[in-house]
Design a protein around this nucleic acid. Sequence first.
RNA 1: GUGGGCGUAGCUCAGUUGGUUAGAGCGCUAGGUUGUGGUCCUAGAGGUCGCGGGUUCGAUCCCCGUCGCUCACCCCA
Length: 429
Amino acid sequence: MSDAVTPFQAPIGTHDVLGAASAEWEGMIATFAQFAYRFGFALVITPMFEDVGVFHRGIGEESEIATKEMYVFTDRGNRTHALRPEGTAPVVRAFIQHSPTTPWKAWYVTPAFRYERPQKGRYRQHHQLGVEVLGTDDPAVDVEVIALAHRFYEAVGLTKFRLLINSMGDAVCRGAYVERLRDHLAAHADQLTDEHQLTWSKNPLRLLDCKDANCVAVTNAGPMLIDFLCADCREHLNHVTAGLSSLGIASHLDPRLVRGFDYYTRTTFEFVSDALESAQNAIGGGGRYDGLAEQLGGKPTSGIGFGSGIERLLMVREAEGVTMGSLLKRDLDLFVIDTTGLDAATLLVDELRRAGFATDRAFDQRSMKAQMKVADKSGARLALLVGPREFEAGEVTIRDLRSDNFEQTQRSVARDDVVFAVGQVLTKS
RNA sequence: GUGGGCGUAGCUCAGUUGGUUAGAGCGCUAGGUUGUGGUCCUAGAGGUCGCGGGUUCGAUCCCCGUCGCUCACCCCA
């Protein structure tokens, strides 16, 4: 006797997508792919894991993600790899490795892994849609990337979201500001929360992201980067906000906006949803990373991108009660019912599928009634019946499953005319 | 990493102040209709009451542990 085996479950913080959710996912990804194509982006696929250095040098060794959230492992060849915690660094690594002509516009859809306790809208494996543009620092590209995100959100039915924007400065002005901020924090360190006692000197910008009232008070009283931008950075930011404005896209300057990765320079942005009560209200974000390629060993190359969480988008869609329906039609055209006990369905289904119709069938020799039920649930427009009578006569019965008076509209056609006949019915509706 | 809530059928949930065979709705299967779905009726299948240990004559219920889910902190998509 074998012992009962406890069934395996998906690992903590991960989830399977199937059933009703799967069409939403497929629709979300297909819609994004369509927008990316429309905006001139091509798909890029990079490995799920990289040398851990790609992320350490990219997102910053002191960042939360690098220090305690990455899935780092050693392979059998003693190489230290990390599962990708985000989408940008690997794409930039690929850019450096292959030197495509610039501007290089790439889009991606990928899982991202972070070891953290799951909660609403936060998982150990989540999925991101995003784009990157390498090789130009034209503020018009910033506008294009942000506009792509904005138009995409609109297309999937979101309405209650805001665009927050800020500038992180560049090599010229950011360093000087960080020193000033550090000095300010040093003078008020006693007012910061315990967990920030180590953070403020190592990564002072992180403090701007804190929601603790005392921290907010301290940083609000201190210097703001927006006031210390060099002339070039200031002009760049002005170009971006003006460009967005000309497209009718409102942006809200948020001088406190900083993001979780160290690689950002100049334009930084985040889309937040007002439809969510929860703490996880960011549906996407990104920014410019003009120093990243160099940090990863490449030639100095400007870059900008954004990423958006699929789980978050679907969550917000639900929270907003989007009524536009499924993003993707996934009902079948045809369902073949075969009660001959022979291989009539096998041949008919193959012919119909080759002709381009979405077609399915039942198995296991079930009764006509049972097969009809399955046909109905499949969402198919037409049922094609082949019973002994049709088989003998060389015919197929076409039944409109979406008609109120299907008895009247049911008719038989010659077996050889089926493709033509269903084509007529399906194109005129 | 820290803290709260919750684990009963595929799903959503009742229930037992500890006591024989644990329930409903939906879903699924079959029949009513010997070749016809969406309505209706009938029947059936499906549960080690998350798992392990303890207390007890007896535990799905009480206690402890554990695993998982969930929410919040932190952080982020």
